[in-house]
């Protein structure tokens, strides 16, 4: 599993697209806010963005359970294919006033922690520039 993290509108998807183009990668499947149920193979790349919208859909659970459930689904998916998760960093602002927004932010943090420890490669993207936190560099130019 690979992670690309960064603030909103920092060029995360563009960075992933560039690296995959550079590798001439075929069979790329991109999803936003959902974990696909279809089956994939190790020849495919599955990109999932807007994980916070996956979290919002399961708001009947508490933050740890949500994080665990989503993490398990992503891990299972990664076993059959090559998963890239695009994580929007939402944990650095002011604590939100609204209870549900706080819960979303907390659940997101829990999920990201699990994803970070599972992932072999983590890249932080800052306005298009990569910082390699874990694993190999991604060639993109």
């Amino acid at each position: 599993m690979r992670i690309v993290i960064g603030g909103a509108y920092n060029g995360k998807r563009n960075f992933v697209a560039k690296t995959l183009r550079h590798r001439n990668q075929k069979n790329v499947y991109q999803y936003e806010g959902e974990i696909p149920k279809a089956s994939f193979t190790k020849d495919d790349i599955v990109i999932i963005g807007s994980l916070e919208n996956v979290i919002i859909k399961s708001d009947n659970l508490d933050e740890d359970d949500i994080a665990k459930q989503i993490f398990d689904e992503l891990k299972e998916l990664d076993v059959q294919t090559n998963l890239i998760c695009i994580c929007t960093d939402i944990g650095r602002g002011i604590v939100p006033l609204e209870k549900n927004e706080r819960k979303l932010r907390d659940a997101c943090g829990r999920l990201y922690q699990r994803l970070f420890s599972e992932s072999s490669e983590i890249v932080r993207v800052w306005y298009g520039i990569p910082q390699y936190i874990k694993g190999e560099k991604w060639d993109y130019e």
């Binding site: 603030g7 909103a8 939402i90 944990g91 650095r92 002011i94 939100p96 927004e101 979303l104 932010r105």
Partner: peptide, 8 residues
């Protein structure tokens, strides 16, 4: 300013 690291 960095204003993009918080929830939408």
């Amino acid at each position: 300013n960095e204003v993009l690291d918080e929830p939408c």
